[in-house]
């Protein structure tokens, strides 16, 4: 149990109901000052609702939420100057430049000597400082959104899906910025459905599913306590391997293109599977055996894939 004074955020039995839908169901957790806390969950799990309550833009149905020791329902204007928020699907004024946008938000926070150039440098937008927001690509917009979230030099930074919709390169650029925040000792509340993002950046991971908090701990703890198996990935030419593995009592999962993933206890089981497929004359194009990662833990705990379907996910440069 940590000292409450060390808590940047304390959520206790939080519930949010929309009519008959229970979006958040008795969620409790704490976030220590200076840690990167990653909030994971499938789409519609209640992540954004929880974040929006914590950052004071929604009201809880019941339970309590304290940010930097203040109650979110009573001390909105005590909390907001000390936090920075990148909301989901962030947008800004189309016809303001990057610099003007940062200047505007710094005025909203009544910042005395805002370091606009420093922020522009931090998110690597120096070349785009005079560009209108509407002309920025998705990745640049997200970087500007992060800079806005930092304009008041906040103690706690909330980033709600900061890399959704970005291509791998743009995503890595955002990760670099987040790692910089971590080094500066900021408390970061990161909502994401990208497991590698959480695994790379987070000190603590909390997994929410169907409105309930189902697991919490460091990425290593979660993997060790929830995934005592190996993941065998087989690259196959046709579907015969699927039947063969099913007959052997395994539960293979088809993952395109032409691959099957199956959980095994140890190396002996891997050997057994390979021998059996060879005997059955099933052609094998390739294989990979590895320890499970956070994605597999997530899959196991929630029963759902963490990411949106490839069709729904758009990449933006």
């Amino acid at each position: 149990m940590t000292n409450p004074a060390e808590h940047a955020i304390a959520v206790d039995r939080l519930t949010k109901r929309y009519g008959s839908l229970l979006a958040v169901d008795g969620v409790s957790f704490t976030v220590r000052k200076g840690e990167v806390f990653s909030f994971l969950g499938p789409n519609g799990a209640g992540k954004t609702t929880t974040v929006e309550i914590i950052v004071t833009i929604r009201k809880p149905t019941s339970g309590s939420v304290r940010v930097l020791g203040m109650d979110v329902t009573k001390k909105k204007y005590g909390i907001v100057p000390r936090i920075g928020v990148l909301p989901q699907s962030f947008n800004s004024y189309d016809r303001l430049t990057v610099r003007e946008t940062l200047q505007y938000y710094s005025r909203l926070f009544s910042c005395r000597n805002p370091d606009i150039d420093g922020l522009i440098d931090l998110v690597n937008l120096k070349d785009k400082a005079g560009e209108y927001y509407k002309n920025l690509s998705g990745g640049l917009r997200q970087r500007l959104g992060i800079a806005i979230a930092l304009v008041n030099n906040p103690e706690v930074v909330f980033l709600d899906e900061p890399t959704t919709g970005l291509d791998p390169r743009a995503r890595r650029e955002v990760w670099d910025v987040l790692q910089g925040l971590k080094q500066k000792g900021k408390t970061v509340f990161l909502t994401t459905h990208y497991m590698e993002e959480a695994e790379l950046l987070a000190d603590t991971v909390a997994i929410i599913s169907k409105g309930k908090l189902i697991a919490m701990g460091s990425p290593r703890e979660l993997i060790e306590s929830n995934a005592n198996y190996l993941a065998l990935t087989l690259q196959v030419a046709d579907d015969t391997a699927f039947g063969a593995l099913s007959k052997m009592g395994f539960a293979p999962v088809r993952t395109p293109p032409n691959t099957l993933t199956v959980r095994v206890k140890d190396a002996n089981e891997v050997q057994k599977i390979l021998a059996s497929l060879k005997d059955a004359g099933t052609p094998l194009l390739g294989l990979d055996v590895r320890k499970p990662n956070l994605e597999e833990v997530f899959l196991k705990l929630t029963g759902e894939a963490p990411r949106e379907s490839p069709a729904a996910e758009r990449t933006t440069t």
Binding site: V85, L108, F109
Partner: peptide, 14 residues
């Protein structure tokens, strides 16, 4: 619709 107001709601503007 663009979500700008949601962002403004997290700042000190009343």
């Amino acid at each position: 619709q663009k979500g700008v107001i949601r962002k403004l709601a997290t700042t000190p503007i009343t």
